[in-house]
Amino acid sequence: MTIPRFVAKERKLTENSSSGNDLGTEIAKELIRQLPIRDATLSAAQQTGEILTDLAKVLHLALAPVQLLAAYQDRFRQFVDRAVRRVPEEKRIAPAPQILGPIVEGIRYEPEGTPIDELFSELLSRSVDSDRAHEAHPSYPIIIRQISSDEAKILSNLKGRRFDYVHTRDYDRKLNLFTGASRVEVDELPRTGLTYPENVQFYMNHLHQLGLAGIFQQGNQEPIFGNEPREQVGVRVRSQYMLTDFGQRFIHACTAGEATNDFS
């Protein structure tokens, strides 16, 4: 039985749409609408081979009815082609529109080849991979749009690793208070490649607010004693830069690497 050809209908949608999110959603809907119907008379292998031979072509066609600037169309087509080609043909499936839409909108403002662009690209690869589509959560493209390139690099560095962070503070025995600013003794987080390494503490606060990563204390605080008289004069706190469970799942889905169910 012949597989139905795609028929593109005109859509009055311009890049000057009132809502950028609407643009991404409409492209996603157009993609899903144009996917051919599976033929129940064909085996699963035939359907995979004939219907999903090249999902990139389907995505390209989905853009045809949408009136976009040529430069953006080229950017999107190249982006999709690169992401889809990572997935073997026999495993390619249609991406969920609630993931594809925000990705389409996100790359509009992101130059090619940046850490953010790579996160979007890997996430799209997950969403079209039948084996790993379950890893692509609809919240992920929204999160990617909220982080900076430096923060993306930090998250990638923390994938499967932790880095020590140790600081001390003075202790006023009379007031029974810790006083003064913290003094950093150990900070092993790599700064190489960061555009603004002086912003690391700000980045970590932001990543913590997003539920992705943080500097988490390990064990109890250690008292620091003076020599004469022997009394506590400070405290030492040992911590580690590390991903949260949610952060591990996020960065695993949005960066290259083998599939795994170990998020402990």
Rank of each mutant, 00 (worst) to 15 (best):
T2G: 09
F6P: 10
F6T: 12
V7E: 14
A8F: 10
K9R: 15
K9W: 10
E10Y: 06
R11T: 07
T14E: 11
S17F: 03
S18L: 13
G20C: 08
N21E: 14
L23H: 02
G24S: 06
K29G: 06
L31K: 00
L31I: 07
R33S: 02
R38T: 12
A40T: 08
A44G: 08
A44V: 12
A44D: 14
Q47D: 12
E50V: 07
T53H: 13
D54Q: 04
D54W: 06
V58P: 02
L59P: 01
V66S: 02
V66A: 09
Q73D: 13
D74W: 09
Q78P: 00
F79C: 04
V80Q: 04
D81A: 13
R82Y: 06
V84T: 10
P88M: 05
P88Q: 08
K91E: 13
I93V: 08
I99M: 05
G101A: 05
E105N: 08
E112M: 10
E112G: 05
E112Q: 10
T114C: 04
P115I: 02
I116N: 01
I116D: 04
S121V: 01
E122W: 12
S127I: 08
V128R: 00
S130W: 06
S130Q: 05
D131C: 04
R132T: 09
R132L: 12
A133K: 08
H134Y: 13
E135H: 07
P141Y: 03
I142L: 15
S148I: 11
R161T: 02
R161A: 06
F163M: 12
R169V: 07
Y171V: 00
R173N: 13
R173E: 15
K174E: 14
K174N: 13
A181Q: 15
R183S: 15
V184S: 07
V186G: 05
R191Q: 11
G193P: 02
T195C: 09
Q201K: 14
Y203C: 02
L212E: 01
I215A: 01
F216C: 04
N220L: 12
I224E: 00
V233P: 03
G234E: 00
V235Q: 00
R236D: 11
M242I: 09
A253P: 04
T255H: 01
G257V: 01
T260S: 13
